[in-house]
Design a protein around this nucleic acid. Structure first.
Length: 431
RNA sequence: GGGUCGGUGUCCGAGUGGCCAAAGGAAGCAGACUGUAAAUCUGCCGGCGCAGCCUACGGGGGUUCGAAUCCCUCCCGGCCCA
């Protein structure tokens, strides 16, 4: 059984750390660690997942995790973002978001009292930042930080040096607010470690320093590498946009597909980051990818595991079955029960039966159907798709944009399968 | 407050009176090849009732036969000065 540090090292999760002494503390257990997330949406997304997984690793190794919602700092905006005038009146809204995120956190972290000293905590910095008197803040935090060192931080320097750019005072202060969070969590909860992505290194190291100066206690910072694709492209996007943990925003099926489609070069890293497989299992999957990349064994294991972690075993199994059926066999070859099961899990929408009335004499054509299924954003786009040969009806390519869809196209009496390209499926359900 | 530069399609970025739905790049989508991979090549990439029309180059107004391009004004951002 590897130690926590061995495990984190094997997985490539340690990018920077504030002090080598942290390694011993990690293996010893008993730390309280926090990671922040932005509660501007009612769901966490793929970008938060790495930190959550890391917190989970810490908890499993005997540490206490805290998920900190940036309900207060959310108003300010991290300097890397654009200033799009956040609204203070959204306070209730943000609080609701924080609560909406709790069940998602609970899938990865143990919030039950039975966890004892490692019981996870969800905190919101709005509870202390929103009413924080400026004078108090300047005395407790501002006094301990020089502008000189703040200006040297990469996030600030980039904004100062680039011509045509600038940084507002509030964004400039962001790192101090984050430092105050660390201080509060240290004083109130005994928190002694902050983790985050490597883009947070400046904020995290400053925070650790401030807590040390104010309290005289030793606290630590640790960052993980940023998740990037081999080509540097942003990771965590599907056709529809971000990959959310909320099944209402990103269905388990899409979530599963997202991880299944990971390229060979990256799958090893993602297995290390997002799964809790043993080192031996990961090595075996690496070897399998090397020897038989076409089998996509690592991708399958990754998708199954992450989906299970986030959505539970039942949903993961359904997503896996739906994927296997859609990509494995011709629709017409599937028996009815399998067909119904697949249709149950795949993305679908309802359509009135009248629209499909009459075989070939209905009013819905392939182009309209593609838009209706939200596979295409406009009729023009749908026409182009058909012209390019990327439109399929019940697994058969459709070349004629005026092809009408009628009752004769129904599968199992009430479904019409539409596909865009090779992997983007949608089902219309006549009702 | 003064001066100055700028605000173009998802993003970056050309364009400075008609040939502009707007160069180029990136991202994205599709096709071919494959393994629901990568790379590569090809096509597409504002909307629509699609040989045409509509809406678009920060907002509004004006000049002109005609404006992303000129003028006025307002809003927003950068830089410099106060």
């Amino acid at each position: 059984m590897p130690t926590l540090v061995d495990d984190l090292t094997f997985r490539g999760l340690i990018h920077q750390l504030s002090d080598q002494a942290l390694l011993e503390r990690l293996d010893a257990g008993g730390l309280t660690a926090y990671a922040g997330f932005d509660p501007s949406a009612s769901s966490l997304h793929h970008g938060n997942l790495l930190q959550l997984c890391t917190l989970r690793r810490l908890q499993l190794a005997g540490h206490r995790p805290i998920a900190l919602a940036g309900g207060g700092t959310g108003f300010i905006g991290d300097p890397s973002g654009k200033s799009d005038e956040r609204n203070l009146l959204d306070l209730d809204h943000l609080a609701a978001n924080v609560e909406g995120v709790r069940p998602q956190l609970a899938r990865l972290l143990d919030f039950e009292p039975s966890a004892g000293p490692t019981q996870a905590l969800l905190a919101d910095n709005a509870s202390w930042l929103y009413d924080l008197p400026l004078v108090t803040f300047l005395r407790d935090v501002g006094k301990h930080v020089t502008v000189n060192q703040m200006v040297k931080k990469d996030s600030v320097r980039a904004r100062l040096e680039r011509a045509g750019e600038g940084i507002s005072y509030s964004e400039f202060s962001y790192m101090l607010l984050q430092a105050y969070d660390f201080l509060r969590l240290h004083l109130d909860e005994g928190c002694d470690l902050q983790i985050g992505g490597s883009d947070q290194w400046g904020n995290i190291s400053l925070g650790a320093e401030v807590v040390g100066k104010v309290t005289g206690d030793k606290v630590y910072g640790l960052t993980t590498p940023l998740v990037t694709r081999p080509d540097g492209a942003k990771f965590g996007k599907t056709v529809e946009g971000a990959v959310w943990l909320d099944p209402a925003r990103t269905s388990p099926y899409r979530f599963y597909q997202f991880f299944l489609n990971v390229e060979d070069r990256s799958v090893g890293q993602y297995l290390r980051f997002y799964t809790f497989f043993s080192h031996g299992e990961i090595a075996a999957l690496d070897a399998e990818t090397e020897a038989h990349p076409e089998r996509r064994a690592a991708q399958r294991a990754l998708a199954r595991s992450v989906c299970e972690l986030v959505h539970g075993e039942g949903e993961a199994a359904r997503a896996e079955r739906a994927s296997a059926a859609l990509f494995g066999a011709e629709l017409c070859e599937l028996d009815e029960s399998t067909l119904l099961e697949v249709f149950e899990d795949a993305p679908s929408s309802a359509i009135s039966a009248q629209a499909l009335a009459g075989n070939g004499s209905g009013t819905l054509d392939i182009v309209g159907a593609l838009v209706r299924a939200e596979l295409c954003g406009s009729l023009s786009e749908a026409r182009r798709l058909v012209a390019a040969g990327g439109a399929y009806l019940n697994n058969q390519r459709i070349d004629d944009p005026s092809r009408l869809i009628g009752s004769g196209d129904l599968v199992a009496g009430r479904y019409v399968e539409l596909r865009k390209g090779r992997r983007d499926y949608h089902l219309l359900r006549a009702e």
